[in-house]
Structure formats: C-alpha cells, structure tokens
Amino acid sequence: MAPRHSAWHDSTLDDVRPYTITGGRTRPKYELELTSLLSTGTASGLADIGPEAEALRLLCAGAPRSVAELAGLRSQLVQVTKILICDLLDLGVLVMAVPTSIAPYEDTHLLEAVVAGLRRLV
C-alpha cells in the first residue's frame, strides 16, 4: 500500500496480492536480516521501479531503515519487502548501510551491572 502522500498512490493498489507485487517470486535473492539497514544509493535510472519499490526508496531517503521497519511502515509482508529490497539493491537504488566505525564503550560500571544481573538470573 503506497503512502497517502505519495504521487504513486492509487487506491487500486491497496488490494494487490503479494505474488503480483513480487512478480510471482517467493524468495529474496540475498540473505537479509530483519535488522539489516538500508539507505538510498546513487542510481539515477528510477524509471524501472514500480510504486511499491518507489515507496521503499522514499522511506530510506532520510535515514537508514531496517527491513522490519520498512515492512511495518508499508504494512507489507516481510518476505514481499525483502524481495522488493533485493530488486532495489540490484539496481543500486538502495544500498546496505554499514556503520563506518563503532566507538568503544567506556562505561564499565553499567556493563558490570548487566553481567551481575545476568548471573543472578541463572
């Protein structure tokens, strides 16, 4: 279902069956976790993507989003979302967002409290 504010919105798309959206495909091409983060790529040829894929691209334009978040925001089955994401990855419309660096965590008191709490559970 396309967002109501999208230029792509067409009420006839609200009832489109998932296998129609994915072109009959049932498995994504790539291994994607629910927590995989995606952001917009640098592809310029967007004429080949449909309204469902365009909506995913627009959602990733502001900040990286997870697969689960995209599926939830679109009210779509996760499997359908993953298949569309794979298409967008192939076109370069979306890219996997990977953190460039992870800052070291220096608050050892909190980590020690977590470990102590976990030990009490056992």
Rank of each mutant, 00 (worst) to 15 (best):
A2C: 11
H5E: 10
S6D: 14
A7M: 06
H9T: 05
S11D: 12
T12P: 00
L13T: 09
D14C: 12
P18D: 03
Y19H: 14
Y19F: 14
I21N: 02
G23N: 06
G23L: 09
R25L: 12
R25H: 09
R25F: 06
Y30L: 11
E31P: 00
E31F: 07
E33G: 00
L34I: 03
S36N: 07
L37V: 03
L37F: 07
L38H: 05
T40S: 08
G41P: 04
G41M: 05
A43C: 13
S44C: 07
A47C: 04
A47Q: 15
A47Y: 12
I49H: 01
P51A: 15
P51Q: 10
P51V: 11
E54D: 09
L56F: 01
R57K: 13
L58S: 10
L58K: 08
C60E: 03
C60F: 01
G62A: 15
G62M: 04
A63M: 08
R65T: 02
A71I: 07
G72W: 00
L73T: 06
R74A: 10
R74W: 00
L77Y: 03
L77Q: 14
V78L: 13
V78G: 01
V80C: 10
I85P: 01
I85D: 01
I85L: 14
D87L: 06
L88T: 01
L89D: 05
V93W: 01
V95W: 02
A97E: 07
A97D: 10
V98W: 07
P99Q: 12
T100M: 09
T100N: 07
I102H: 12
A103S: 13
E106V: 13
D107H: 11
L110A: 10
E112T: 11
A113P: 01
A113R: 15
V114E: 13
A116N: 13
G117V: 05
G117I: 04
R119Q: 14
R120I: 01
R120E: 15
R120A: 15
R120D: 14
L121N: 05
V122M: 10
